[in-house]
């Protein structure tokens, strides 16, 4: 079966690397983007099976990106996971309204990440 492609969007390179490292080890193909704008560009140019994105980012934040991405061709039903913190419950609702599939609360460990991803892609 083809390897699932995941787009990881975060302005923190260490978080991106951690996500990338963990998911590659779990058998996914991971592409990184460093903010919302970068993320949108990458999703427009190729197809991903899942998108994981931070919310607080420069240039374009996560919620804006999700809203825009849902309108992109082929992204109507792609799972989009947002990274939130306990201190921002309202962001969760906003992300949901924008079309996010689910969320993962920071801080998280690699196992938690993989288990959430597996909820959303095979």
């Amino acid at each position: 079966m083809m390897m699932k492609r995941i787009l990881a969007v975060d302005d923190s390179s260490s978080v991106r690397e951690m996500i990338s490292f963990t998911l590659k080890k779990a058998g996914y193909d991971v592409v990184q983007a460093n903010d919302g704008q970068d993320g949108l560009q990458r999703s427009a140019s190729s197809k991903f099976d899942l998108v994981i994105t931070d919310l607080n980012m420069p240039r374009m934040d996560g919620i804006q990106m999700i809203t825009a991405m849902r309108k992109q061709q082929g992204y109507g039903f792609v799972p989009i996971l947002m990274l939130t913190t306990e201190s921002q419950p309202e962001k969760k609702a906003a992300g949901r309204n924008a079309g996010a599939t689910g969320w993962i609360v920071k801080p998280f460990n690699p196992e938690q990440l993989v288990s959430v991803i597996q909820k959303l892609v095979r």
């Binding site: 079309g99 599939t101 689910g102 959303l120 892609v121």
Partner: peptide, 14 residues
Amino acid sequence: MMRFGSDPALLIRE
């Protein structure tokens, strides 16, 4: 449900 990117089959498999 599916418009938010969830696949029921995956939940059941979980």
